[in-house]
Amino acid sequence: MERILHTPVSGLHVTAALLAVFFGTTVVLLPKGTRRHRQLGYAYVASMLVVNGTAFGIYELFGHFGVVHWGAVMSLLTLTGGMGMAILKQPAKNWRFWHEALMGWSVTGLYAAGLVESTYRMFPAHYFWWVTMGLSAITFLTGGFLLRYGRQIYARFGPFRRVEAVVSQKKIENGRLKR
């Protein structure tokens, strides 16, 4: 079996990537704009900076700067763009939209990179583009669909829909809920 971790840099890269998956997924699922969102978001960004930084020191796949490294460049662009929107609050009218979109693409890219890393060792080299990059493309298509339509789907089928509907039917009178 082929070794998965070639160098200490690879070990740091995988550890940071697993942390980024945890923090990124948690941030996506929790309510936005809260203190917890910001704290976990900063943890995600820190772990992604380590993932991207170490990616430029790993060359075992192709032996030179390759498609994986271009993925790290795109990851850095979405990460810095998304955080820049949140920190600078610019453009003022729709910085939240761009923050959510760019950070959403950052997490989607992380998932796609995880699939690439997990599958390229499983198949012969001539299947790389079909299997590995095909799964990555499916991940990006799914991520794009969820980034575009996720709120509507969640609002309609989400787990709290029924509870919110029941609460909205009640009225508050004298500090008590009345039906």
Results as ranks from 00 to 15, higher is better:
Ser118Glu: 06
Leu177Ser: 05
Gln39Glu: 03
Gly144Tyr: 11
Val166Gly: 08
Thr142Val: 12
Gly63Pro: 04
Trp105Leu: 07
Ala137Phe: 13
Arg96Glu: 09
Leu30Asn: 03
Gly104Trp: 03
Gly158Lys: 10
Arg176Thr: 02
Glu100Ile: 05
Ala16Pro: 14
Trp70Phe: 15
Val73Glu: 10
Arg36Trp: 05
Val50Ser: 04
Gly24Met: 09
Phe160His: 10
Phe65Cys: 05
Pro8Gly: 11
Gly134Trp: 01
Ser10Val: 02
Lys89Asn: 09
Leu115Thr: 03
Leu135Glu: 02
Gln169Cys: 09
Arg38Ile: 01
Ala55Thr: 13
Gly33Arg: 04
Val45Ser: 10
Phe160Thr: 01
Ala92Asp: 05
Ile153His: 08
Gly82Lys: 10
Gly104Glu: 01
Phe62Tyr: 14
Gly109Pro: 01
Leu30Gly: 00
Leu49Phe: 10
Thr7Trp: 15
His6Phe: 15
Leu110Arg: 10
Glu164Val: 10
Ala46His: 04
Tyr59Trp: 13
Leu77His: 10
His13Ala: 01
Phe140Arg: 08
Phe160Pro: 00
Phe123Val: 09
Leu110Thr: 03
Ser47Tyr: 05
Thr54Ala: 15
Met85Cys: 11
Ala92Trp: 07
His37Cys: 02
Leu19Phe: 14
Leu135Arg: 12
Gly41Asp: 06
Thr54Gln: 14
Glu173Phe: 12
Lys32His: 01
Met133Ser: 00
Thr119Phe: 07
Gly158Ile: 00
Val73Arg: 08
Asn52Ala: 13
Tyr59Lys: 15
Met122Gly: 14
Ile87Lys: 14
Thr15Ile: 11
